[in-house]
């Protein structure tokens, strides 16, 4: 079993200094569209057997990152490697070969299934195109997959609209598993589902991961969901990773003020604690990012240094905990006076 533990540290996906901009193009008879850095220099490693959660609020670039890994959009700079292959610019047959190893689960289970296809057609397409399986093998595998995601095999001949959101997401997961991939990229796979259904899918994902020895990159805005499913987490803000490390470290002793705020903002069931509002203001305009630290304009610790000098993502301790804050040596939670008492 020594070999397997060595394999467990093997990096499967290495994202290095990846950037992606949108806009900035010259337009006919119009000023150039504003240039937006959706992803701005992200470096992350996804190791075999890991579940890496990428969290952040809308516009932080987490979905763009996922779509770059899948080759749906190419990065403007940096490299993305799967094992030793640079996959950021694969085309045609090479890219199709990659899809045997990396697959994707989408956010909206209904719109990710073609309404005109039966479940069988949807599940068999990747087996046929990517694995060249014959009809009998495809049929056998389709039934196996349905069983895996706890759906009845009779459903194979139905169309997507006949399923509830949770069932449709099971089909989406089954499709991703059809080629026996190593890595699943999951882009908010439960955020469109009701809470009782969300738990079913999360349990299924946890079970599949250990049964099939999968590696997850899990994109989510819901910290509690990431806490439940993932071992590693990266917190993104305005296109950059501001903090990353093990889920335990990050959620229990965060070093970046934004992580502090994010954790404090999650409403807690059953507690009539004072409603808090640490963050004044909104996301800055991504087309006109502030100088220095991106978070400085909203940060409770910001100093002149923060507004002038951009902090590096530096390591703390030996557990792989990294944070991009000038004060990460001495993390301080949001001050009490930012917490407004209920004037009951």
């Amino acid at each position: 079993m020594n070999a397997s533990s060595a394999m467990n540290n093997e990096p499967l996906i290495r994202i290095e200094a990846v950037e992606r901009t949108f806009g900035g193009a010259r337009r006919f008879l119009a000023p150039p569209s504003p240039l937006i850095h959706a992803v701005n220099g992200v470096t992350l490693t996804l190791r075999r057997g890991d579940a890496l959660g990428v969290v952040g609020e809308s516009g932080c670039g987490k979905s763009t990152l996922a779509r770059m890994i899948m080759g749906i959009i190419p990065p403007t700079a940096g490299t993305i490697r799967y094992r030793d292959t640079d996959i950021s610019s694969l085309r045609g047959a090479d890219r199709r070969r990659l899809y045997r190893n990396i697959q994707f689960v989408f956010q909206d289970p209904q719109s990710s299934l073609n309404p005109r296809k039966t479940v069988r057609e949807i599940l068999e397409a990747p087996m046929k195109k990517l694995l060249n399986l014959d009809a009998a093998a495809r049929e056998r595998k389709a039934r196996e997959l349905m069983d895996r995601v706890n759906l009845r095999a009779e459903f194979l001949d139905r169309h997507p609209h006949e399923f509830s959101g949770g069932q449709a997401q099971r089909i989406g997961i089954a499709r991703a598993l059809a080629v026996d991939p190593d890595v699943l990229i999951l882009d908010e796979p439960v955020s469109a589902l009701d809470v009782s259904i969300q738990a079913q899918i999360l349990s299924l994902l946890k079970e599949l991961k250990s049964d099939l020895d999968l590696t997850y990159l899990f994109i989510s805005h819901d910290l509690a969901v990431v806490d439940y499913l993932c071992e590693q987490v990266a917190v993104m803000y305005l296109g950059q990773v501001v903090e990353q490390g093990s889920v335990g470290e990050i959620f229990e002793s965060p070093r970046h003020p934004y992580t502090h705020v994010l954790l404090r903002s999650v409403p807690e069931p059953g507690s009539h604690r004072p409603t808090r509002m640490e963050l004044s203001g909104e996301l800055p305009n991504p087309a006109a990012l502030p100088a220095g630290c991106n978070f400085a304009p909203r940060c409770y610790r910001a100093t002149a240094r923060c507004r002038g000098e951009e902090p590096d993502l530096r390591g703390y301790g030996d557990g792989g905990h990294r944070a991009a804050c000038h004060f990460a040596d001495d993390p301080v939670p949001p001050p009490e006076d930012a917490i407004t008492e209920r004037n009951a």
Binding site: Q198, A199, D227
Partner: peptide, 21 residues
């Protein structure tokens, strides 16, 4: 319903999903 919502800082807790629809 309470038992099937994941909660921050409680990752040891198993989620017991409500079966069915």
């Amino acid at each position: 319903l309470m038992a099937c919502v994941p909660r921050l800082g409680d990752r040891a807790r198993a989620l017991t999903a409500i079966p069915g629809l």
